[in-house]
Every structure is written in structure tokens, then in C-alpha cells.
Design a protein around this nucleic acid. Sequence first.
DNA 1: GCGATCAGTT
DNA 2: CACAACTGATCGC
Length: 623
Amino acid sequence: MGQHDSDRSPPMTKRSRNDNDPGNDGSAKKIRTEPDSQQVSLSDDASPHDHSPATDDRQQDFEADIAKAIKLSMEQAEKYHCGLNGESSVDGDSGSPTSLPGRPQQQHHCPVCSATLVLSIGKFEQHVNECLDQGGNTLSTSTTTDKQQTSSWKQLFTSIPKTLHNAFTSSTSATTTTTTMTRTLISSTTSPRRYKSMPDYKWMKDTNFVVDAFSYGKIPDCEGYFLTHFHSDHYGGLSKSWSYGPIFCSQITANLVKHKLQVDEGYLSVLPMNEPTFVLPTIKVTLIDANHCPGSVLFVFDIQHSDATWTRHLHTGDFRANPEMCLHPLLRQPDNPTIDTLYLDTTYLNAKYGFPAQEECIQAACRAVESHIGIQDDARPKTALDRWVGQSAPPSPKITQSSAFDALMTGSKVANRSKGLLVVVGTYSIGKEKVFCALAKLLGSKIFVTQAKRSILRCQENKELENLLTLDQNEAQVHVVPLNHIKPENMYAYLKSLSPRFTSVVAFRPTGWTFRATKAEETEMEIGSLSQVTTPPLDRRLVLRPGHSSPTVKIYGVPYSEHSSFRELASFIASLDINHVVPTVNNESEKARTRMAMYLNKWGQDKQGKPIQVVPYPAISHW
DNA sequence: GCGATCAGTT
DNA sequence: CACAACTGATCGC
């Protein structure tokens, strides 16, 4: 996102950054029972959630206008910042935050009160801020003086929670809109950090818990911070100075948080896997493996109400959906309660994202390595088979023959033939372990990692994995390096540094976006019914093609994703009983939101009146 | 010098 | 160009 960095804390401020953190929208409510305004209903009583194209377009214009206006306001507010606490303003640099003299007046739409206003940008900002301050209950079009604007900013970041609380308890659709809008505006990319507020979907409904929300400072009334997994875009804001409340997560994630961020152990509350655990007298939480990265979990929240009834919500964090999850004793239908609200990882909730199962990718990577072992064999006379294998895009039946051929060779012979071949796998700090483990197994090799990487892997408490690791580059034919190191120049240099132990290198970049559905597949997915979308493709063969290829260096992208594909998301939704879905990814774009709502509504309709059963699968590990 | 954040990169 | 997630640079304190 193109962030503009025009906003710095004024030097004289006495408030700490955290004090400035608004943590505002919606944060002051008690138990939340309002439906999130962005959720999509999958239930029979599916209330249409106003996503007509016309509305969206206008909405988009509003947001764009407002984002601009807000940015300007922020800059102006910045100048006043010293006065925000009601302390005497420091004179000097503040200057006059005028309404930009010389600007023509133009028509604007206030996103809060919906009024159409003909005002200069500066005056318009004042109006919007006033509206925001009042929780959207004003229809006033009056402008404010500069001084009033100052106090209006103070209010926005200190008093809004109360305002919104009131708004929430009075529960009108207008205030719901306001809440969402407030969030949208303030968290827009043009806003300075300390004004960032938390999106609604971070609150777990019917609780005072938040999920993956560490970058908003202290969140008022928040009783617990849940962390789904250890990736920086989810733990962002966590550091050793964390003191805002208990963090609930898996053992592996807790290990990583301790090791990498030095968060005080006292704040870490490890929950067991697969075992409903009371975190409050009326709330139990179950962790289920999310199939994303080590330690990643789904959170099942079961909440008991005062009338002794229970409500269930499921937060997927980041996840790669598979049949195993839907067959989990605590999720499978019909043995378990309906999921009222599903907080869904919608990263790839778009028909253009179709990619193979992880197993298929790993197989394909293994076949690629096998083909290079063939090429490496200078001693062996060239056969027709070798010539096939040596082609850059060998037809897959011949690949199969190659695998069969290699399988016939004795272990030592394979090892000998591949001795000078180095296999490099790129990873982020955690994740993609299955890829390098499978390759190491194929080659009967250990895995080279740096010390730093080893201590990260040790957080998984997996002795089998640890025993495969080595710190000696020469001892392992499989090397794990940071993903962004895998580019041609680096690989040539790396190979040279390891000469003469290794003579060629095959490198893999496992990443989700290498692969795209064909246009035809995309169209079918786009318009297909739920059962059509969940139907697997007939041809699931995957042949990797190197993105870079020379006699000594080959680099392959592998469509190895740790997020669900479009088809898997559809399969997951089809396999469970769900009332509502709240997307947790791609929410910033109106276009994406509309698109996601469209799919979810359609699928919801397709499910009507049909019994819930797990979508047929070729293996329990994938659809 | 440390912590936080953003732009750039694959 | 898609995306997620990381690194390095830069800023403020």
C-alpha cells in the first residue's frame, strides 16, 4: 500500500504513542452481539446485505474522497497535536490549519451523515470530523473554528469508544454503518499509524476477545488477545514491552513468541490442541490445526449465554482447508453445533486462484529433482530416457518412467549420481517445512540450516525434524535459505562458494502465487454452483517448469500454498453448517468485498435445504 | 541505541 | 501484474 509518510509526531508531544492509540471503534462495548456489518449471511433468513453495484460504486467514491479529506485533516491535526490533551498549546510551529486558501469549493458527500456538501476541503474535513465525533448522529453541516477542530480531534481519539458504545447498544442500522465507516476511514492507508483503529472483524462476537490484533495499542475493554499463528502480519505490534493483556495461542506459537519477540512469559497463555478449554466461566475455546504454518490454529469459541444456551463461532486465522478439519470430532456434522459466525481467511476467495494440493506440489518438486539426477549422471551413457528427462518440459508419462527408473536403482547409485547436486529451498521464518523434508527424504540427505533457522525450527518441538538438521553445509544436499535469496545471481554465487562440493543447484521457491487458474476454469468457478466449484479438476498432473535455467542453476517456482484455494474455501463452507461468514482478508478493497459477498451469498443459497456433508476428497489431507 | 513502521522485494 | 510475508531503511524518542 502506498503509504504517505507526511505525518510525524510533533516533537513537543507529551503523550506516548500508545496513549494516542485510539483502539476506538467499537472497543468500548461490553459483550458484542451486533452482527458485523460486513458479514455475509449463509442462513435461511439471509438478510440481503446491501451490496448492490450502485451502492458500492458510490460508496467507493465516498471512501476515496474521504480518505483524501481525512489525510489532509490528519496533517492539520498533527500541527495541533500539542493541544490535544487540553494542555496549553505550544506556540510556534503550529501554523494555521486553514482550509487551504485558493482551493475551489466543491461538492462532497459526508460518509457519516450522508449529506451532500459544497465546501472547501478544509471545511468539509471539519464537518466529517464533527460527524465522527458525534457518532454519526449529527446532520449538522456547520463548520467549526480552528479551535473547535482541535478539540474535535481530541474527542475522536479519546471519547469515541463511549460514543460508539452508546450507538451500539441503541443498535440502529445507521450506527452500524457509522462504525464501519469510522474504521474504514481511520485505518485507510493515508492515515498516520496512531490514528489507526481496529477493524470490527478483529472482535470475536459475543466476547470481549480480539484475534490477531496487537497493533492497536491497548484496546479498551479487551479481556484477551488471541494469536492464530506466528506470522508478522498477524503478531505485528507484539514485542517484549507487551503489557496489554493475556495472549492465548498454541504451544508452538507461544514458543516462537517467546523466542523471537521476548514477550514476557507471564502474558502467554497456552491452550491445548483439540481440547475444549474454559478461558472464562462461560467461554470455552478449542484449538484445531490450521494446516498453515507450524503452530497455526483455528479457534472454536463456544459461548454460554445467561439462558444456558450456547453459541459457536469459528475463527480460521490463516488456514489451508482440508477434509480432515471438517471431520474433526469437534467440527464434523451432524454431531456438532452450528457455527454461527465463521471468521474466514479469504485470501484467495477469488475464482482466479486455483492451485494444486500441497502433496501434488511436493511430488512435482521431487520429480523435478529426479530428472536432474538423471542429467547429472555423466558416467551413464545417454539413453532415450535421459533425453526425455533432459528436456525442459518432459511429457508426464515419461516423467513417471523416470521415477520408476530411479526407483529401480540402488540407493547408493542414486546417491552417487546426485552427489554434486545441491537442492535449495526458500522459506520464510516458519512454514513450508514439508517441502524441504520431502526433498531430504528423497535424497536421503540431511538438511542444512543456519543456527537462527534451527532455533526457530526447534520451537516446533519435533525431534524427528530436528534430527534431520545440520549446521554443516557440506553434510547436506538440501539447504534451506530465506525465500528472497533465491534469485539467479545469488544461486551462482552460492554454488561457487560451495565448490567443489557441489557442481549444480536446483532451487525451489514455494509460494502461493506462482499458479493461476486458466481463464476457462476461472469463468466456471465464477459462475458455477457450489457443487460445480467443489468438483476437482479432471487433470491434476503438475509439471514444474524452471523460471530460470542454465546448465548449473535451475530455479523453480512451486505453487505451494499455505492458504486455501478458491475451491478449498468452497469445499470447507459446503462441508460445515454455517450461519454467517465474516471475511478477515481483503477487506480493505470495496471491490474485493463485493466479490467475496457475491460468492458467499451464492454458496449460501446453494446450500439451502440440502444436508451438510463433507465434500468428497481423494485423501483426507486435501480435496 | 532501540522500537516501530513503511517501502521495496520476491 | 497477481499475494503474503519478510528485510532493510528510516524515523522518533
